[in-house]
Amino acid sequence: MKVAIPVDDKSMSTNVSQSFGRTPYYLIYDTDSKKSVFLDNSAIASQGGAGIKAAQTIVDSNINAIITPQCGENAAEVLKTANIKLYKTINFSVQDNICALNDGKLPILEDIHPGFHGHGGN
């Protein structure tokens, strides 16, 4: 399974980003090979609809699940249509969240917010 996590930097010691749609990078973690790669988020500079564009990138990268502190409703609609699972982060540590995922201890993300539409949230 391939999992995407929004992160602040291209390093394994980086923190989870507060925003799904406007995060600078995604960490793509493969639970089978245990390998990680980083993906640039081209949606970060979007005037609007960043969540939709970011979710499209995730779908196109054949991701099976995302782990994120929060997610807007438009992005969530794209991800859910593509049958991508949404997990909620337990804290800001990338390692902790990957461990929790491997242990099956990550909660499902339930509270989808109405979107920030360019006003704060990050």
Binding site: A43, S46, G49, A55, Q56, V59
Partner: peptide, 23 residues
């Protein structure tokens, strides 16, 4: 269409174009 839309109102998911009316 998806690449053109400056407002990112379109997505292409499982062989289907989705339009976000509010965007």
């Amino acid at each position: 269409c998806v690449e053109f839309c400056k407002f990112n109102a379109l997505a292409f998911i499982i062989n289907k174009v989705i339009v976000f009316d509010n965007v």
